[in-house]
Design a protein around this nucleic acid. Sequence first.
DNA 1: ATCCGGCGAGTGAGTGATTACTCACCGGAA
DNA 2: TTCCGGTGAGTAATCACTCACTCGCCGGAT
Lengths: 216, 216
Amino acid sequence: MTRTTQLSRQSSQERQASLIQAATTLFAKKGFNGTTTKEIARAAGISEALVFKHFPTKRALYAAILAEKVTVNELLGAIEESAKKQDDRRVFTLIAGYRIRPDVDPTLLRLLLFSALEGHELSDMFFGKHHKVFYDHLATYIQTRVNDGAFRPLDPLLAARAFIGMVVHHRLLHEIFGVPMDRPYDDTVSTYVDIFLQGLVAAPHTSGARKLRTRI
Amino acid sequence: MTRTTQLSRQSSQERQASLIQAATTLFAKKGFNGTTTKEIARAAGISEALVFKHFPTKRALYAAILAEKVTVNELLGAIEESAKKQDDRRVFTLIAGYRIRPDVDPTLLRLLLFSALEGHELSDMFFGKHHKVFYDHLATYIQTRVNDGAFRPLDPLLAARAFIGMVVHHRLLHEIFGVPMDRPYDDTVSTYVDIFLQGLVAAPHTSGARKLRTRI
DNA sequence: ATCCGGCGAGTGAGTGATTACTCACCGGAA
DNA sequence: TTCCGGTGAGTAATCACTCACTCGCCGGAT
């Protein structure tokens, strides 16, 4: 057994942090029901009893994880800036890049899906912090571009969901379903943005009778 | 207690069928680890022991479900037909319609996600039967349209994934994350198809230098 | 007609293992 | 001495799974 680390006493805060770290990995990999408190303790290098000194129940530990893992939104600043310049391509690339980039931890995606599927009470909040911000932001941007006349009139929220859907689906296929992706990552983003921007711009291609029912 | 049904003896096949039915609902709702064999037995109206007369293990029952729930592909015929007529809009609408229509059982989507997340060995096959057929089909169609010159050159598989991604994401938001959808269903489909078709057609909107790196 | 014997559907009452969680206790630093 | 981080050894409950058994039905010998 190689248990070289964590022999020493740690402060309560340090312990709690490394405990959350270990638990996050396990919950993301095997879900709430699939993870035992014994496993968590072993992964954190402590006894099972100590886990319950920090969190009263297993569920409380899980809740703490969902509550803690909020996206750091330095990204939103960059988007805001590109939005002011009306740089469509860059706005979409930034959002797609964040959601699709392979170096962004796939753990959160799994955690999000698990919590939603298992119906955890904090799932909504987790979803709000991790997904909703993105398409609310994007929807707002699309709305302004529609008002400009740069994009054709359509439901901006629906359009935002559609774009993020493409991109999230790509991550899903790769990380959850294990579909191999042969093209380099930024190549893929570029293609997605290409398709989508051309799909949104004001000039419609009107082949035959296209009934374009759009409210708002 | 209202246990009016299933007091009588049933044939092995009938039992097995109703057992699978009951188990499917439960596995989809709570996942493999979240469902107990006692629950399954109770839902099927039989004793727990009888469950194990039909399936040697809980996992075997789960495997039987994944193996059994294969999509009936009467839909693919309709798509094929529209594809021959090169009716782009109808091809995409058919695929989107199937994947997004609210009357199509959400159970399968949950089952698919659970099996993938929990890493079940039959997940791949289940995914292949339920998802892969759709975007392989769509990719083939897109490829022919690219060859025709009707669509601009791009990776057809990537494009197919992108479109189905939009549509699956929509179901995900609604059925898994509980996001309310205020627009009627066929209105949404129409918008998605609008965006996507315009994004694919041959005339690019070329704002500035658009590097369009496409292989194949 | 009646008896019989085997068979398959069905079950109650368990089995050991594992679960989340508790408690009495330890040892080093202040 | 007194906290406080840390633990070993539990506990009751629950888990998947088993076993010995009953019941009703059907086909054939009497």
